[in-house]
């Protein structure tokens, strides 16, 4: 009687596992499972992800198939009997997975991931430099203006409504700095190097469509590099909990054609001009 009930359980569980495997794998074909990508390194990130999907998917599928097969074969009626494996087989079953896992995962991170990672953190000399400042719960971007220099940000001059970056009116570098609340403007196809800072707590500059994510840490300037590849308007969402307003700490990256970007930049006046 026990064996019969066991057979039911074996079939149930193994069909469930196979169903779960099919559904999980099938979901990749049915669901729109990632946002479109609009940056150069973003394609690399996606390449990396695709590689892991295949590697991990292989383990996932094989593992579940083996498990389900074993359940049916060795569950229920007692047909099989235990005989210890030989030492050699046992070592094979140990060294095999070790070599496989290390090779697959390290190859991926070194061959595909590494170069992309470097791309994100290498400042190229002709990059457009954009300064991003985060505060509860806003993104403020800044461009250096005509002189190409950023003015110093002074905490003592901070005023939410009047001077959210704490710029000094008397500082000639700061005078023509262009400050934009809640939006970033970028020319398409050109590298942009971001200096990211925060006034108060941790935030994270997260633009999923550009595959960009970099924490804003008070007291520290962090960097990331983006080369947008498509004109469009992409949402920034904060990705590091920063308080109750975390969920609505939004902003937009407006990627424009080079001409449109130049036009936009020209139309801007400095914060103290």
């Amino acid at each position: 009687m026990r064996s019969q009930r066991g057979a039911v359980s074996a079939w149930l569980l193994s069909s469930l596992l196979i169903l779960a495997t099919i559904l999980t794998v099938g979901a990749f074909f049915v669901l729109k499972w990632r946002p479109e990508v609009a940056s150069e390194h973003g394609r690399g990130v996606d390449r990396m992800i695709t590689y892991i999907i295949f590697a991990a998917g292989f383990i996932f599928v094989v593992g579940h198939l083996v498990l389900s097969t074993f359940l049916v074969k060795f569950g229920g009626k007692g047909t099989a009997a235990y005989k210890p494996m030989t030492h050699k087989t046992e070592m094979l079953f140990t060294i095999g997975p070790v070599v496989f896992m290390v090779a697959v995962s390290e190859l991926g991170v070194l061959a595909i991931g590494g170069p992309v990672w470097n791309q994100v953190y290498t400042h190229k000399p002709d990059d457009l430099v954009v300064d991003i400042t985060a505060k509860q719960y806003e993104w403020i971007s800044r461009y250096p203006g005509k002189d190409g220099k950023f003015g110093r940000k002074r905490p003592d001059l901070f005023d939410d409504q009047e001077n959210p970056l704490g710029l000094d009116r008397k500082d000639p570098d700061a005078k023509d700095d262009i400050v934009v609340r809640g939006a970033v403007y970028l020319p398409v196809g050109k590298g942009a190097w971001f200096n990211i800072q925060s006034w108060d707590v941790l935030h994270s500059f997260n633009v999923p469509v550009l595959r960009a994510k970099q924490d804003a840490v008070p007291g520290l300037t962090t960097h990331t590099r983006i080369v947008p590849t498509a004109v469009g308007r992409y949402e920034i969402s904060c990705a590091e909990i920063c308080g109750p307003g975390h969920y609505r700490m939004r902003g937009f990256v407006n990627v424009k054609s080079e001409a449109d970007f130049a036009k936009w930049l020209k139309s801007q006046v400095g914060w103290f001009e």
Partner: peptide, 21 residues
């Protein structure tokens, strides 16, 4: 790697077993 070993060992423990559900 060591996790794969644990996983394989768990799976292989079912090999030629007489499973009671």
């Amino acid at each position: 790697a060591p996790f794969a070993v644990l996983g394989v060992n768990l799976l292989a423990s079912l090999w030629r077993a007489r499973i009671r559900f």
